[in-house]
Simulated assay, not measured.
Amino acid sequence: MTEYERSRTMPAPPEQVFDEAANVGRLNSWMPEDLHVRAEELPAVTVHEDHSDRDTSALLRARKEQMRLEWGTRDTGGYAGWLQVAGIDSGASEVTVHLSFFEKEHDPGQEAVHTALDGSLERLEEQVRLRVDGAAG
């Protein structure tokens, strides 16, 4: 098993950050750009991967009381992850994303995963900023 984790500070309270991250209709705006999530009957979702042109059955659970998203492959059990939002001083939040690859063939490697996670967290921060700025204006 291989695990990866990245964190980023967001300019909003944890409830706002979690609401943005957990919005199933907006997941594609911040997730890795080659992944597209289509909700079925939650927690069931389908994830389409552009580079392989494959659909994968997955599960996605939002636990608002814990400020946590959890996901993973449904049929194969090769991959799982979570996103945790925690409040920090001055109304900001820290978002941590953790990925676990249970089978070597599913692991794209450290550089690819870190690049994808950093890009996703950056896009999520942009979405949070737009939401905060829109609410203030």
Rank of each mutant, 00 (worst) to 15 (best):
residue 40 E to Y: 01
residue 33 E to W: 05
residue 76 T to G: 04
residue 32 P to T: 01
residue 39 A to D: 08
residue 65 E to I: 01
residue 33 E to F: 09
residue 54 R to T: 10
residue 35 L to A: 12
residue 55 D to T: 07
residue 41 E to I: 13
residue 29 S to K: 15
residue 32 P to S: 05
residue 46 T to S: 10
residue 58 A to E: 13
residue 68 R to D: 00
residue 32 P to G: 00
residue 28 N to A: 08
residue 48 H to A: 06
residue 93 S to E: 02
residue 61 R to W: 12
residue 89 D to H: 13
residue 29 S to C: 10
residue 49 E to R: 09
residue 75 D to P: 04
residue 46 T to W: 07
residue 33 E to A: 11
residue 95 V to P: 02
residue 61 R to T: 07
residue 53 D to N: 15
residue 94 E to F: 00
residue 61 R to D: 04
residue 45 V to L: 03
residue 81 G to C: 03
residue 63 R to M: 11
residue 59 L to H: 09
residue 90 S to P: 01
residue 27 L to G: 02
residue 66 Q to N: 14
residue 72 G to N: 05
residue 41 E to S: 13
residue 29 S to L: 14
residue 49 E to D: 08
residue 79 Y to M: 14
residue 51 H to M: 15
residue 49 E to A: 05
residue 35 L to Q: 08
residue 42 L to S: 13
residue 31 M to S: 10
residue 31 M to Y: 06
residue 92 A to V: 06
residue 96 T to M: 08
residue 63 R to G: 02
residue 68 R to Y: 04
residue 69 L to S: 01
residue 57 S to A: 12
residue 81 G to M: 07
residue 63 R to N: 09
residue 71 W to D: 10
residue 46 T to G: 02
residue 58 A to P: 06
residue 96 T to H: 00
residue 81 G to R: 04
residue 70 E to D: 12
residue 34 D to T: 09
residue 84 Q to F: 01
residue 87 G to M: 09
residue 97 V to M: 04
residue 52 S to Q: 12
residue 74 R to P: 03
residue 75 D to T: 01
residue 35 L to W: 07
residue 29 S to P: 08
residue 43 P to V: 05
residue 95 V to H: 03
residue 77 G to I: 06
residue 60 L to C: 10
residue 43 P to T: 05
residue 85 V to F: 00
residue 85 V to L: 00
residue 27 L to V: 09
residue 37 V to F: 15
residue 46 T to R: 15
residue 48 H to F: 14
residue 97 V to D: 11
residue 89 D to P: 06
residue 54 R to N: 10
residue 85 V to S: 01
residue 48 H to E: 07
residue 34 D to A: 05
residue 76 T to R: 13
residue 64 K to H: 12
residue 62 A to Y: 06
residue 62 A to Q: 07
residue 81 G to H: 02
residue 38 R to S: 15
residue 67 M to V: 00
residue 94 E to P: 03
residue 37 V to N: 00
residue 53 D to W: 03
residue 35 L to E: 05
residue 64 K to F: 03
residue 44 A to I: 11
residue 27 L to H: 03
residue 58 A to M: 12
residue 97 V to N: 02
residue 29 S to H: 07
residue 45 V to R: 10
residue 63 R to E: 15
residue 48 H to S: 02
residue 72 G to I: 02
residue 63 R to D: 14
residue 93 S to Y: 04
residue 29 S to Y: 12
residue 71 W to P: 05
residue 94 E to N: 06
residue 59 L to Y: 14
residue 85 V to W: 00
residue 49 E to N: 12
residue 45 V to A: 06
residue 91 G to P: 13
residue 96 T to P: 00
residue 61 R to C: 03
residue 56 T to Y: 08
residue 30 W to G: 01
residue 33 E to L: 07
residue 38 R to F: 15
residue 52 S to N: 11
residue 44 A to P: 10
residue 78 G to W: 13
residue 53 D to S: 14
residue 34 D to W: 07
residue 82 W to K: 07
residue 59 L to Q: 11
residue 33 E to M: 03
residue 74 R to C: 02
residue 96 T to A: 09
residue 39 A to W: 15
residue 39 A to R: 14
residue 82 W to S: 14
residue 77 G to S: 10
residue 87 G to H: 09
residue 51 H to G: 11
residue 55 D to E: 11
residue 59 L to G: 10
residue 68 R to A: 07
residue 71 W to S: 09
residue 29 S to E: 15
residue 58 A to R: 00
